[in-house]
Amino acid sequence: MSDVPGNLVLAMLRRMDTKLDRGLEELHDVKVRLTAVEENLAGVHRRIDRLDERIQRIERRPELTDATH
């Protein structure tokens, strides 16, 4: 009879350990995916910066200025 409470606690601890392991795996997956999102967003920012530079270069061309000036 004295082993039953101990076994019950041990079983509960094992279930908690399993759930904790699963949570840690999911957290790792989320971190990997977040890193990928951050890298892709950085790439988008670089492309926008290049487009902005190209637009500024185009706007500086004298032949493209408004003829009414």
Rank of each mutant, 00 (worst) to 15 (best):
Ile48Leu: 15
His69Gln: 10
Thr35Arg: 08
Arg57Ser: 05
Val37Phe: 09
Arg61Ala: 06
Leu24Ser: 02
Thr68Trp: 00
Ser2Met: 11
Pro5Val: 08
Met1Arg: 12
Asp17Arg: 13
His45Ile: 15
Arg47Gln: 13
Ala11Leu: 15
Ile48His: 00
Arg15Ala: 13
Leu20Asp: 04
Leu10Lys: 15
His69Ser: 11
Glu53Gln: 07
Leu10Phe: 07
Ala42Ile: 03
Pro5Glu: 08
Glu39Thr: 08
Arg33Ile: 05
Ser2Ile: 11
Arg57Asn: 04
Gly23Val: 06
Gly43Arg: 05
Thr65Ile: 01
Arg33Ser: 06
Ala42Tyr: 01
Thr35Gly: 05
Arg14Gln: 13
Leu10Cys: 08
Ala36Asp: 11
Arg15Tyr: 08
Lys31Phe: 04
Asp52Glu: 14
Val32Tyr: 05
Glu25Arg: 05
Val30Phe: 14
Lys19Glu: 10
Glu53Asp: 07
Arg61Gln: 14
Glu63Trp: 03
Ala36Asn: 11
Val4Tyr: 07
Arg61Asp: 11
Val4Ile: 12
Glu38Lys: 07
Leu34Cys: 04
Met12Ala: 14
Asp17Thr: 08
Glu39Leu: 12
Leu8Gln: 13
Asp66Leu: 02
Ser2Trp: 13
Glu63Lys: 02
His45Lys: 13
Leu8Ile: 09
Arg47Tyr: 00
Asn40His: 03
Arg33Cys: 03
Glu53Gly: 04
Ala67Met: 04
Met1Ile: 11
Lys31Leu: 09
Glu59Trp: 00
Arg15Asn: 12
Val30Trp: 10
Asp3Pro: 15
Asp49Pro: 00
Arg50Gln: 15
Arg60Met: 11
Pro62Glu: 10
Gly43Pro: 01
His69Leu: 09
Leu51Glu: 06
Met16Ala: 12
Pro5Gln: 11
Glu38Asn: 03
Arg33Trp: 08
Glu59Cys: 06
Thr68Ser: 15
Gln56Trp: 02
Ala11Pro: 02
Leu27Trp: 07
Arg47Val: 10
Ile55His: 01
Ala42Arg: 07
Glu59Arg: 15
Leu34Pro: 01
Val9Leu: 12
Leu27Lys: 10
Leu41Tyr: 03
Asp52Thr: 14
Thr18Trp: 09
Met16Gly: 04
Leu20Phe: 10
Ile48Pro: 00
Glu53Cys: 02
Thr18Ile: 14
Leu10Ala: 15
Ile55Gly: 01
Ala42Asp: 11
Arg14Lys: 15
Glu38Met: 05
Val37Ile: 13
Glu59Phe: 00
Asp49Thr: 13
